[in-house]
Design a protein around this nucleic acid. Sequence first.
DNA 1: CGGGATCCGATTAGATACTG
DNA 2: CAGTATCTAATCGGATCCCG
Lengths: 131, 131
Amino acid sequence: MDAVLRADLAAQGVAPGCVETIELVRDVLARVGDKWTVLIVTALATGPMRFTALHERIAGISQRMLSHTLRALHRDGLITRTAYAEVPPRVEYELTPLGRSLAAAVDHLVHWVQTHQTDIARNREEFDTGR
Amino acid sequence: MDAVLRADLAAQGVAPGCVETIELVRDVLARVGDKWTVLIVTALATGPMRFTALHERIAGISQRMLSHTLRALHRDGLITRTAYAEVPPRVEYELTPLGRSLAAAVDHLVHWVQTHQTDIARNREEFDTGR
DNA sequence: CGGGATCCGATTAGATACTG
DNA sequence: CAGTATCTAATCGGATCCCG
């Protein structure tokens, strides 16, 4: 598998010897492409938010997936988690500078999709109906 | 759910009335983030390829997933599928202009990941070991 | 050669219930 | 309030067989 990946990377102009890069790329792309990640990051782009606020704003998400996704984003250093020792407890999530820079990069792709959504929708319709 | 999505889009500076946009964005991001899609697109970025050539080059992919992913990319108009009426049969896949423009947009994100991979790897390690 | 159809194990995610 | 734990339904993906 390494040989193949090296070939891909070489063809892409990537220097050899850093095969694990593509694994991480895949990994991060998968996270970015994730349904809930996109919604959480765009929600947090407006400012810090509490768990329940996110849960209410992102309709349809379960506590489980919200918790899991937040933890993954935290692990990657894309968001911060601040717990205040109060009663009742309060926890705030916020994008880190790294998270904001990723949000900007994602935005680029989002704009591409918005620009070409008509094309893609038409392509799909043609493909489904016409054949 | 619509109200929430509208709120997200408004917060993002997206004009109201195109809620289904975010669905499509999610959809395309999910496809782009897909493990096999990335490898197929980068492989095809070097030029047209046959089914078996892709199957050999992208080690580890099953015929099923190659077939399914190619079909999805074809459906979205990101690649073309050309079958030659020969014996034995020959089928060539190639990126469309739309596919190439997406590949360029993805490249942007890939570069972001490559730039910040060290940070993310370190963040993960800190998170896993330190706490 | 280039797949489609089917079976089946593995991963995922929702619903629900419980806790510091 | 902010989660975790558990069970279960659905989806995904690999292996295998078969066909034009």
